[in-house]
Simulated assay, not measured.
Amino acid sequence: MTAGRGRWPKIDQDNGIEDAVLLILEWLGEQGVGAAIRLDAERLRDRKPAWTFTAGGGPLSHPMRADGATARECLSRALVHLREAGVDVPF
């Protein structure tokens, strides 16, 4: 979290992690990590996990990727991978 900027709201757990995705991406950018989340329409049509989160740079020793059938699943997996890599996202 960036002190003094006041942009980190308390997250309503009932709404899910999807509500915090832009804050997570911004925080990662501030740490020097390039990150993106996307929805692949072709994979969605094929009933495959269509959401993908990718990140690399900064404190990450190598790029990472997490996939999921929903945005919530994808982001939850991504946060686990980031924490395992030593990037403790404050959400």
Score class of each variant (00 low, 15 high):
Gly4Ala: 12
Gly4Met: 10
Arg5Asp: 12
Lys10Gln: 10
Lys10Val: 11
Gln13Asp: 12
Asp14Met: 01
Asp14Thr: 06
Asn15Glu: 12
Ile17Met: 09
Glu18Cys: 04
Ala20Gln: 13
Ala20Asn: 11
Ala20His: 13
Leu22Phe: 06
Leu23Gln: 14
Trp27Thr: 14
Leu28Gln: 13
Leu28Trp: 09
Leu28Ile: 08
Leu28Arg: 13
Gly32Thr: 08
Gly34Gln: 15
Ala35Thr: 11
Ile37Ser: 06
Leu39Pro: 03
Leu39Gln: 07
Asp40Met: 02
Ala41Ser: 10
Ala41His: 10
Leu44Thr: 06
Arg45Thr: 13
Asp46Ser: 01
Asp46Ala: 01
Arg47Asn: 11
Lys48Gln: 11
Lys48Leu: 05
Ala50His: 06
Ala50Phe: 03
Phe53His: 00
Ala55Met: 11
Ala55Glu: 06
Gly56Lys: 08
Gly56Ala: 09
Pro59Gln: 14
Leu60Asn: 11
His62Ala: 15
Met64Cys: 07
Arg65Gln: 09
Arg65Asn: 02
Ala66Ser: 15
Asp67Ile: 06
Ala69Tyr: 01
Ala69Gly: 01
Ala69Arg: 00
Ala71Ile: 10
Ala71Cys: 13
Arg72Tyr: 01
Leu75Tyr: 04
Ser76Gly: 07
Ser76Glu: 11
Ser76Asn: 02
Arg77Gly: 15
Leu79Arg: 15
His81Thr: 07
His81Cys: 07
Ala85Glu: 14
Gly86Asn: 14
Val87Lys: 14
Asp88Trp: 12
Val89Asn: 09
Phe91Pro: 15
